[in-house]
Every structure is written in C-alpha cells, then in structure tokens.
Amino acid sequence: MTPFLAELVGTMILITLGAGVCAGVALNKSFAQSSGWIVIGMGWGLAVAFAVYAVGGISGAHLNPAVTLALAFQGAFPWADVPGYIIAQMIGAMAGAAIVYLHYLPHWKATDDPGAKLGVFATGPAIDHPFSNVLSEMIGTFIFVLALQALGANAFTEGLNPLLVGFLVVSIGLSLGGTTGYAINPARDLGPRLAHFLLPIAGKGSSNWRYSWIPVVGPLLGGSFGGLFYSAVFKGVLYPAFWAVLILIVIVLGIALQAGRKRDAKTANKLVA
C-alpha cells in the first residue's frame, strides 16, 4: 500500500467511525439517539486511535491537513508530498461520509431536522460568532498539534501511541469542543460537508457554506502555529514561518471580527426597519 492510499483509507476509517457516532446520536430511531456529548467525544477519540493503528506504519497517519502542514513547516515532511496527502485525506473523508450515509440509509427519512442531518457530516457553532468560532478552532488545533508532538517526544510501550492520540482527541472534545464541535481537521469537516451537498439525503437542507471556511482556515493556522510553537519553545528552533503564520492568524481574526460586526449591524438594521 502506498502512503497516498494509506492516508485515504485511514481518513475513511476515521470519518466512518466519527461521523457514524454522530449519526447514531442524532438520527431518529437509532438505538444510540440522544446518548450525548460524552458518547460523541469517545466515539471520535476511538475513531482517531483505530485509524492511526490502521495506517500509521505506512503513511505516518496524518489523516489531517493541519498535521501535514505543521510537519511541513517544521521540515519534518517534504512539501512536495503535501498536496498528495491532502487530496488523499479529502477523498477518504468523502468516502467515509458516503459509507455513513449508506449505513444509516432509512434513518434520514425518519429524521425531520435538517440541522441534525448536517451535524452528522459537518461541524457548526453553538453560538454563531465568527471571531470566537475561528478562534476556537485555532485553539483546539493548536493544542492538538502541540500535545501530539509532545506525545511523540516521550517513550511509550510499543503500540500505545495511537491510543494516547485518541485520548487526546477525547480530551479536546470534552474540554474545548462545545463551542464549534471541534473540527480540528479541515478534511474531517470539508470532505463530509461536500458529501452532504452531493448525496441524495432526504430533507437535508443547507450545507451551511457560509460557515464552512472556519473549520478549514482555523485548524490550518492553529495547527501550523502549534507545530512551529513546539519547535520554538521545546526545541529552541525558531523558523521564519513562525512569524508569518502568527501574522496570518491576527489578520484572519481581524477579518472575522469585522465580518461579525457587519453582520450584527445588518441584523440590527433589519430589526429597526
């Protein structure tokens, strides 16, 4: 198996199990319906662990463009391989979402809420606030990449690392995931969102493309900065990209803040009118 195929299959496993737990909790007439946030958090953590177990020895199991980009910025992964890895991750994410759609086939029609159906595939904000939403995704992915690299610096019993990565995802989900659903992975959100848009899901409603940039840009910047921060603080190696990514983060947060203010102003004007 090539690294490209390994990333595709690994991401497919990740999304099949991750989106699958979301479907079980959200869709009507599922035995797991309404089982709660802890079940979702554990489901995603185990999904990451077993996906890493499956392909870690072949591709390194990035399964996440934010991880791939962070490693490339550190010089630990060749830039020439970045596009191929990201394409594989996106294809795998869409394939995993399609498997979940087929697995729960009769439950889509039995579920009236289009928001619940979208939530199976993609994330969304608990409170729609662009600045806070993109900041949440940045923080979650920053912690993920930072802690991921710290795990790699420690010696564990052979085969235990993937399980610890899964517990890291559980921790982020339970502690930081309540604001935006913790995408912390552009492929995890954009791939299934595209699948939601393309698949013939009964009564599916909007794919919420207005929000879709946040779980892509936030994790890419937060994860990249997490890797560069680890290199600077833990290893004493300050790459020039550290400052470039930090400036981009400030710019994106400024844009999000202005976008939120403009939207709030329009809403206020409509209410007055």
Results as ranks from 00 to 15, higher is better:
2 T>M: 12
4 F>K: 02
11 T>F: 02
13 I>G: 03
14 L>G: 05
14 L>Q: 08
19 A>D: 07
20 G>H: 07
23 A>W: 00
23 A>C: 11
23 A>R: 00
23 A>Q: 05
24 G>P: 03
24 G>L: 10
25 V>Q: 04
29 K>T: 08
30 S>E: 09
33 Q>E: 13
33 Q>R: 15
35 S>T: 15
40 I>N: 05
41 G>T: 02
42 M>A: 14
44 W>G: 00
46 L>S: 12
46 L>D: 09
47 A>K: 11
50 F>G: 08
50 F>R: 02
55 V>G: 03
62 H>Y: 15
62 H>A: 15
63 L>A: 09
64 N>L: 07
66 A>M: 10
68 T>L: 11
70 A>C: 08
70 A>V: 02
74 Q>F: 12
75 G>H: 13
75 G>C: 13
76 A>K: 15
77 F>V: 10
79 W>E: 14
80 A>I: 14
82 V>G: 04
84 G>W: 13
90 M>Y: 13
90 M>G: 10
91 I>D: 00
94 M>Y: 09
94 M>R: 10
96 G>I: 06
97 A>G: 10
99 I>Q: 07
101 Y>I: 04
104 Y>D: 05
104 Y>E: 03
106 P>F: 14
108 W>L: 01
112 D>T: 15
113 D>W: 02
117 K>T: 04
118 L>E: 01
118 L>H: 01
120 V>I: 14
123 T>K: 02
123 T>G: 09
125 P>W: 08
127 I>C: 12
129 H>D: 11
135 L>D: 05
136 S>E: 09
136 S>T: 13
138 M>R: 05
139 I>K: 03
139 I>S: 08
142 F>W: 01
143 I>Y: 06
145 V>G: 01
146 L>F: 09
146 L>R: 03
146 L>G: 05
147 A>Y: 03
150 A>M: 14
154 N>E: 13
159 G>Q: 10
160 L>H: 14
161 N>K: 14
162 P>N: 08
162 P>W: 04
164 L>P: 07
165 V>S: 13
174 L>G: 04
176 L>W: 09
176 L>Q: 11
176 L>H: 10
177 G>I: 03
181 G>E: 05
183 A>G: 06
184 I>R: 04
185 N>D: 01
188 R>H: 11
189 D>I: 01
190 L>G: 06
190 L>H: 05
196 H>A: 01
197 F>A: 12
198 L>D: 00
199 L>V: 07
201 I>H: 04
201 I>C: 02
207 S>A: 13
209 W>S: 05
212 S>V: 01
215 P>K: 09
216 V>A: 03
217 V>Q: 01
218 G>Q: 02
219 P>V: 04
220 L>R: 01
228 L>C: 09
232 A>W: 12
237 V>D: 15
239 Y>K: 06
240 P>E: 07
242 F>L: 11
244 A>E: 10
247 I>P: 07
259 A>S: 14
259 A>K: 10
259 A>D: 11
263 R>P: 06
264 D>V: 07
270 K>Y: 15
271 L>R: 15
